[in-house]
């Protein structure tokens, strides 16, 4: 691994900074975010907000029009076992999506949400 590669990888959410290993994807889940509606999206970086407001849904069709959703991916490091959750909030619009920025939680803050 070159120096440049190392620097670039540090910014990737699926990269364990301690073990310097690529993490494995350990789960994917779609959540509804009922407190966020179209035109009223505000980015939150506080994990408590997501712990209180994310509701797991089985499929995209379960999300009503105008309500935001979150596609969550969890990564696990095979070396140290650390878990990282990446949230991708988006507004589902028919068969398309209006994407907002990704939010990364590197210290297992959202592990409780995965156990819902």
């Amino acid at each position: 691994m070159g120096l440049l590669d190392g620097i670039l990888r540090r910014r990737q959410p699926d990269w364990c900074r301690e073990c310097r290993l690529e993490m494995e994807e350990s789960g994917e889940q779609l959540f509804a975010l009922p407190c966020m509606s179209v035109g009223h999206y505000v980015e939150h970086t506080d994990p408590e907000f997501y712990q209180e407001n994310l509701y797991a849904v089985a499929q995209r069709a379960d999300i009503p029009p105008g309500m935001y959703a979150c596609a969550a991916i969890q990564y696990r490091c095979s070396g140290c076992g650390k878990r990282v959750t990446v949230l991708n909030p988006f507004l589902p619009v028919r068969d398309q999506e209006k994407r907002e920025g990704s939010i990364v939680f590197r210290n297992g803050e959202l592990d409780d949400v995965w156990r819902q």
Binding site: G39, P65, V93
Partner: peptide, 18 residues
């Protein structure tokens, strides 16, 4: 039609229809 502004407009309209 896949622009963010348009998608937001469609979403608002769909919400109000509902």
């Amino acid at each position: 039609l896949n622009d963010d502004k348009v998608l937001e407009g469609i979403s608002k309209a769909d919400l109000w229809v509902q």
